[in-house]
């Protein structure tokens, strides 16, 4: 049984690869493999087209949507990386699709039109990295207070913050 799955998995991912090349003519897809995980890096200009093609290729669930700040990370040119972790529920096949993004234009189209589960995930990415998702049905911060000024998971934000945790009135004993 174990042999069967290891034999069938690569062929399955090869089918998906050829199907995606069919669906996305002229879009640069960089494929790579790491410890059995398949990743694809696609161009940021074709985001919604790519996501729709991934869905058409059978990836019907968005398991996670997150981002990475690559500031001072090795020899990379791009600042942000938006990561879509996809799952084909029927076959169990997974795909990690990535897209690079740079300042100052941090606006990308929302994935909620493709997978509605992207709703809170995109709000969290905006909360932590400041990446704006255009076309989101309810776009605001998810975890932090609405009046929070910074995006704390950016690498140029100090880990202790900029004094937000000390910005409260002091209740003394006599007035309480």
């Amino acid at each position: 049984m174990a042999n069967e799955t290891t034999d069938s998995k690569p062929s399955e991912i090869e089918t998906v690869k050829s199907r995606l090349v069919e669906l996305l003519p002229g879009v640069g897809l960089e494929w790579s493999e790491f410890r059995g995980q398949t990743r694809v890096v696609f161009a940021s200009g074709e985001l919604l087209r790519c996501l729709n093609a991934f869905k058409a290729a059978g990836f019907d669930q968005l398991t996670d949507l997150t981002a990475v700040d690559l500031l001072e990370y090795g020899n990379v040119d791009d600042r942000f990386e938006v990561v879509y972790c996809l799952l084909n529920v029927d076959s169990g096949l997974r795909l990690i699709a990535k897209m690079h993004l740079n300042e100052p234009d941090l606006t990308i189209p929302s994935a909620t039109s493709v997978w509605f589960g992207a709703d809170w995930l995109e709000r969290e990415v905006y909360d932590m990295y400041g990446i704006v998702f255009a076309g989101h049905p309810n776009f605001k911060r998810l975890l932090l207070p609405d009046d929070f000024q910074s995006f704390p998971l950016r690498k140029d934000y100090p880990v202790k913050g900029r004094g937000e945790r000390h910005n409260f009135p002091i209740v003394t004993r006599a007035e309480s």
Binding site: P152, Y157, G161, R162, R165, H166, F168, V171
Partner: peptide, 10 residues
């Protein structure tokens, strides 16, 4: 950045 460093401050 998010955790209050002792409630006795406030």
């Amino acid at each position: 950045y998010a955790v209050v460093q002792g409630i006795d401050r406030f």
